[in-house]
Simulated scan of single mutants.
Amino acid sequence: MIRLFAGLILLACFAAPAMAGPDAAAVNNAEFRGKPPANDKIDPIVVKAQVLLDRANFSPGEIDGKLGENAQKALRAFAEAKGLIVNKQPLTPEVWSALIATSADAIVVDYKIAAADVKGPFLKKLPARMEDMKRLKALSYTSPREAIAEKFHMSEALLAALNPGKKFDQADQTISVINVIAKETKPIATRVEVDKSAQTVKAFANSELIAFFPATVGSEEKPTPSGVLKVTSIDARPHYRYNPDYKFKEVRSRRAFTIRPGPNNPVGTQWIGLSAEGYGIHGTANPSKVSKAESHGCVRLTNWDADKLAKLLKKGIEVAFIERQAANRK
C-alpha cells in the first residue's frame, strides 16, 4: 500500500499540467519562428495571422486559431498577391513578415459587453428544418455568446478560450475579443471570380485582387452555375423565399414559403442576387462550415464576408464561375 501511494505521488509530480487557453498577451506578442503551427488546436500565432489576413481583405473565414483549410487558402492567396513563394507550408517567415507589415494595431483587445449584445431576443434553438423556420418572427442569434463571436469574426470556441469562466450574458462585463478593424469602402470591384473547384471568391478592381474569401460552392445535387453572370440585387437582412421548384431533398413542403430575416436565416445577413434565377452569393448561419459543406447551388460565405463583399459591389458587375484547378489537371 505504501509503495502504491508513493507511486501515485510520483506520477502526480511528473504529470503534464493542463494546457491553458491563449490569452491576449500571448496572441499580441506572438512571433513566428519558422516551426509550422499545429492545425488541430488553437495557436496564438495562427490567431494573429488570421486577424491580419482578415484586416488585409484575405479572409480566413471564421477566426478560430487553427491552421485549417480556410486559413491555408487565405495565406496562399495573400502570398500570391505579394509575389511570395509557398510550397506545402503556407505560413513561412516571408509570409509572416509581409502580414506583420500590413497592420500594427493590437490583435486582441478589451471589450465591454454592451446592453445591446445581451438584449436579444434570442432563439432557444435554431430549427434544423426550413419548414419550422417559417413560423419564427426572426432568425435571431441563439445566445449572446454566438452574437459576440460573430460580431468579432471569431469562433465561439476561441471566444471562450480567450475568456475562461465567462458566460457573456452580462452587460458591462469586460472580455477579450479580436480587434476587428472595419474600413469603409466604396463600390470599387469591377469583377468577381468564383472558383468552383478551389471553393473561393475573389474580387478584382480591374486586374488588382482587392478581396479574397473562402466559400461553399454548390454540390452534385445542386451544382453552381457556369459561365458569367451579373449582380442583379444587393439586399441586407434578406427574407428567404423557398420555391418548391428548387426541390431541395430535405424540404418536404410543396408550397412556397418565406423565412424572416436574421443572422441565422438560411442566407444569413446578406443576399447578392445573380442573373440566374434563384442563385446568389450570401451569408450563412454556420460560419464554421464554410467550404467544408455543400450548398444548394449558391455561393455561401460567412455573414461578415458576405457583408464586406456587398460593400465592394454594385449592380451589373460580372461574376465569373470558373474551374481553374480542374482545368490545370487536364
Rank of each mutant, 00 (worst) to 15 (best):
R129S: 09
V95F: 04
K112L: 10
M130H: 12
M154D: 00
D117G: 09
L126A: 11
A106Y: 07
K134P: 02
G120H: 12
T142A: 06
K124E: 15
T102E: 14
A149L: 05
K151V: 07
T92K: 05
A116S: 15
A147F: 10
E150S: 10
V118L: 12
L91E: 04
D117Q: 12
D117Y: 12
K137V: 01
A101F: 02
L126I: 11
I148K: 00
L84P: 08
L159C: 06
A101E: 14
A106D: 15
P127Q: 06
Y141F: 15
T92W: 03
I107A: 01
P127T: 09
Y111M: 14
M133H: 10
A138I: 05
L123G: 11
V86D: 00
V109I: 15
T142P: 09
K119A: 15
E150T: 02
P93Q: 09
M130N: 13
L99A: 00
Y141H: 10
L139C: 10
V118M: 10
P144T: 08
K125H: 12
K112R: 14
I85P: 03
D117C: 07
L99P: 00
S97M: 00
M130P: 04
P121V: 11
A106G: 13
F122T: 08
K112I: 03
L136A: 06
A116W: 14
M154H: 01
A81G: 11
A115E: 15
R135P: 00
A149C: 03
S143G: 07
G83V: 00
A149Y: 05
K137C: 05
L136G: 01
L91Q: 03
K119W: 05
L84Y: 06
E131T: 09
K125M: 12
S140Q: 08
R129M: 10
L99G: 00
G83T: 03
D110Y: 04
P127M: 06
K82V: 00
Y111G: 13
A128E: 15
S155F: 05
A81M: 01
V86W: 07
L99F: 06
W96G: 00
S140L: 08
A115F: 14
S143P: 04
A160M: 08
L158P: 08
K119M: 06
T102F: 10
R135S: 11
W96Q: 03
A101W: 01
E150M: 07
A114R: 15
L126S: 08
E94W: 01
L99M: 04
V95E: 05
R129G: 02
F152K: 04
A149H: 01
S140W: 08
